[in-house]
Amino acid sequence: MAKIIKNYEELVTEGYGQGHGRDYKPCKTVQNFSSIGRSHRVQGRVSKRLHHLFSDLELSTFLLLDWNQKVTDIREHYPLDIYDLNSICSRYRMNKVSVDYIPFTLSSDFLVDFGKFPIALDTLYSKDLNKAHIIESLEIKRRYWEEEHNTPFKLITEKDIPATVLENIKWLYVEKNDLEITNHMIDQAIYFMEEISQYPQSTLILFCNHTDQTQKMGIGTTLALFRKLFALRILQFNLEISYLELKLSDIHASNLLQNENTIHATN
């Protein structure tokens, strides 16, 4: 027991599981923790730092969270206080936290802030839901968050991931981290909205291909521009519709663009 506490305290002393935004240090990183699945390092829009993810399901969950405008912070691999964990295990006659968790202790995959309201999330493939030790671990985590820390706890499986929404976000994610809104982009968006009003039933793909041909631009140029405008949320569409099937009538201007358009009209 003393060894577990010592290692947990060392973890805290070194700053793991502490901080917010750019300053947060996950207790597991790609460099110091081996993963059974595929590992990913992804730059976050919300946190402005590199996130360490250890499965495709963790990546999918992260992308959905990072795109959500209500999310204000995402802390992955958040270590759980070992004193609270073993107190729960004692009360409910569960196995105490094993030394197998050292030096990283038991953690939740994500602690997510929606404004002032945190939610703890764990990801798990549904095929693993019939494993007794995993079920017990999840129950310990649920009691830890809900009973000890008054924080909602939710389990995410691959069945909770909306496939079309995720594919759209992956398409947009390539662009959105390195972009800034410029006056030139606003002008382009206003121009596109004027064109869209003339061809509402055209698909985005056909419109972009036609524009590339008539303007004698390289194939994919117009679509790449639309992707930037979508990524910056200057133009928007329902992410439940694949961008490959999107009609121009499905695209609408953001509040930002509507305000800018009003300014243009009055000048």
Rank of each mutant, 00 (worst) to 15 (best):
I4C: 04
L11V: 05
Y16P: 06
G17T: 12
Q18M: 12
H20M: 13
V30H: 13
N32K: 02
R38I: 06
G44D: 02
V46Q: 00
K48I: 05
R49I: 05
H51P: 02
H52C: 04
L53Q: 09
F54G: 05
F62D: 02
F62S: 04
L63K: 09
N68L: 04
Q69K: 15
K70H: 12
V71D: 03
D73R: 08
I74A: 09
E76K: 01
Y83M: 01
D84F: 05
S90I: 08
T105E: 09
S108Y: 06
F110G: 01
L111D: 05
F114P: 12
G115Y: 08
P118W: 11
L121Y: 15
D122W: 07
T123C: 15
L124R: 15
L129H: 02
R142G: 08
W145A: 02
N150L: 06
T157Q: 09
K159M: 04
I161V: 13
I161D: 07
P162I: 08
E167K: 15
L172W: 05
V174H: 15
N177W: 09
E180D: 12
F192Y: 15
Y199E: 06
N209A: 14
D212L: 07
D212V: 07
Q213Y: 10
Q215Y: 03
F226S: 03
L229T: 04
I234N: 02
N238V: 00
H252T: 12
A253C: 00
A253S: 15
L256R: 11
Q258D: 09
I263W: 07
